[in-house]
Computed example of a mutant assay.
Amino acid sequence: MDDLTGFQRDLLYVINGADRPSGQDIKEEAEQYYNADINHGRLYPNLDTIVNKQLVEKGQLDRRTNYYAITDAGKDIIQERRDWENQYLES
C-alpha cells in the first residue's frame, strides 16, 4: 500500500464499506469525510489508478453509471494497513 496516496487509500475504504457504489456515491462519501468538494478531475483518475492496480473492479450499472467493487487484493491492502496502524495504537 506504500505506493497509494492517502486519497486512494480512503477511496478503498469507502468502496469496501458500500455495496457496489457508483462514482457519484463514492464522491459524496469522500466529500463528507474531507468536508470539501471533490471534482471529477481528482476523483476519477484516482479511481482508475486503484482499478488498474486491481484493488477495485469497475463494472456498469447502466449505460451512464459505473459501479466499483473491492477485490480480494484490495481487502488485503486494507487489512495490512489496519495491522500496521494497530501496532502503533495498541502500545
Rank of each mutant, 00 (worst) to 15 (best):
Y67R: 08
Q87V: 12
Q8I: 06
Q8H: 06
L12R: 05
V14A: 12
N52A: 09
Q24A: 14
T5F: 02
Q60N: 15
E80L: 03
L11S: 02
L12C: 07
Y33L: 10
D2N: 09
Q60L: 15
L43V: 04
L47S: 04
A36M: 11
I70C: 03
I38H: 00
I77E: 00
Q54E: 15
Y33F: 11
E29V: 14
R42M: 03
R63C: 14
A18F: 11
I15T: 03
T71F: 04
T65G: 08
Q87F: 11
N46E: 10
L55P: 00
V56S: 07
D76R: 02
R64D: 13
N35S: 12
P21S: 07
N35I: 00
A18G: 04
A30N: 10
Q54T: 14
L55I: 04
G17S: 03
F7S: 05
K27N: 12
Q79C: 06
D2G: 05
L4V: 02
Q8E: 12
P21F: 02
D72V: 00
D10W: 07
Y44Q: 02
A69L: 08
Y68A: 04
G23Y: 11
K53R: 14
H40F: 06
L47K: 05
I78W: 00
G41D: 10
T5E: 02
Y33K: 13
N16W: 08
H40A: 03
L61D: 13
D2W: 01
P45Y: 03
E80P: 03
G74P: 01
K58S: 14
R63L: 15
T65D: 12
E57G: 04
Q32I: 07
E90Q: 15
Q24C: 10
D3C: 00
S91H: 15
V56K: 10
D72N: 04
D10T: 12
R9W: 04
L43W: 00
E90P: 07
R9V: 01
N35H: 13
Q24E: 15
D37F: 00
D62N: 15
L11H: 00
A36E: 13
Y88Q: 15
D76K: 05
Y13F: 13
G23E: 06
W84A: 12
D3Q: 03
K53Q: 12
L55A: 02
D3F: 00
T65F: 10
R64K: 14
K75C: 00
G17F: 06
L4M: 09
P45M: 05
I38P: 01
K27Y: 01
Y44K: 02
L43H: 05
L61E: 15
K58D: 03
W84F: 13
F7A: 07
L55D: 04
D62P: 13
Y68W: 12
D62F: 12
Y44A: 02
D72G: 05
I50L: 01
K53G: 01
G41A: 11
G6E: 07
R9H: 10
D48S: 10
P45T: 03
I15S: 01
D37Y: 05
T71E: 06
E57P: 08
D2I: 03
E85M: 13
Y68R: 08
P45K: 03
K58Y: 09
A73V: 01
